[in-house]
């Protein structure tokens, strides 16, 4: 029997994948199915789930509400679509900003002297040692009306003799964007660094040898060869930003509500898990669709393989 096992590559593969498959089915597929079932249920008055089959939650997500002001049976207000759209735009903006900030830094680290390189990478990773929530709170301290940034600005204004009104930065979409960019920057820097580091120095020399100056070498050689890192980083940043609620909760307050906040509030505050489940599924489907089209176009960030 062991003899056969040794020879049969596909059985070997299955055996190796088994622990992961069990893990995935218990902790991913089952909860997902449960969420699906719950999303078709109805909330009981005391906040429990009544298992039935109704599309009410999805109809509500589309914007048709039952508790209307004018006493109508149904009214239309696309509040959830707005939230979804806002989340999508924010995730997009965050990803673009993170690429614009992360790429030059990754490039700088990859071209640094090997001894310094590890130090720089270490510095990129240090913030990750602190709890995510605490890091976001730190931004709250900075962005508050009487926070670090306003104090510094006030000090400068005072120095230059300009009158100064503390800026309202906290609880704005900008604050959420800043927080997101800060939180997810390392997840863009690391994959870009990895793909830049893999580019053999002789390729830069070959480009120079063939007549390319630094700018053209970057555009024609460095950038295309590092695209796998950008793609991988985009996937690593876009998907979690779509779902996270902590950053918007702390830095956006009631002003900037994202899908993540919506879902969280259904489970904890509104005590309507059925609606929360429906929202979570819609978020997942939307993220999947965006990721699907993105990866169809750019791949998963693997090596550029010949067609």
């Amino acid at each position: 029997m062991f003899q056969r096992l040794r020879e049969n590559k596909s059985v070997q593969g299955t055996l190796l994948a088994l622990p992961t498959m069990i893990w995935l089915s218990v902790l991913l597929i089952l909860p997902l199915l449960l969420t699906l079932v719950i999303s078709f249920g109805r909330r009981s008055p005391d906040g429990n789930v009544i298992f039935t089959f109704t599309l009410d939650n999805y109809i509500r997500l589309l914007g048709y509400h039952t508790n209307c002001a004018g006493g109508q049976a149904r009214c239309f207000d696309p509040i959830y679509a707005t939230i979804l759209w806002r989340s999508l735009v924010l995730a997009f903006n965050t990803t673009v900003l993170v690429i614009l900030l992360g790429y030059p830094l990754a490039y700088f680290i990859a071209r640094a002297h090997p001894k310094k390189r590890n130090l720089y990478l270490f510095m990129v990773l240090i913030p990750l040692w602190t709890n995510f929530v605490i890091r976001v709170y730190a931004w709250m301290m900075l962005l508050r009306k009487e926070g670090g940034i306003n104090i510094a600005l006030g000090w400068f204004a005072n120095l230059l003799g300009i009158p100064f009104q503390p800026l309202e930065m906290l609880y704005t979409p900008g604050a959420v964007l800043v927080g997101m960019v800060y939180e997810f920057l390392p997840f863009m820097i690391l994959p870009i660094f990895t793909s830049l580091e893999k580019i053999d120095n002789s390729l830069y020399e070959a480009a120079a040898d063939l007549g390319a100056n630094a700018i053209r070498t970057f555009l024609r050689v460095t950038l295309p060869l590092s695209m796998p890192g950008v793609v991988a980083g985009t996937i690593l940043v876009f998907i979690p930003v779509m779902g996270t609620f902590i950053v918007s909760d702390i830095l956006g307050g009631r002003q900037v509500i994202l899908v993540g906040n919506l879902i969280q509030r259904q489970y904890l505050d509104a005590r309507d898990p059925t609606f929360g489940a429906a929202a979570a599924l819609i978020l997942m489907v939307m993220t999947l669709i965006v990721t699907y089209f993105y990866t169809r176009r750019f791949g998963f960030g693997e090596e550029i393989v010949a067609v």
């Binding site: 053999d200 390729l203 020399e205 070959a206 120079a208 390319a212």
Partner: peptide, 16 residues
């Protein structure tokens, strides 16, 4: 290098 009328064939070829 990009201003020299000299070209190199690299040991590892260094193809793009």
């Amino acid at each position: 290098p990009f201003q020299r009328k000299v070209n190199t064939v690299f040991q590892n070829y260094a193809l793009f």
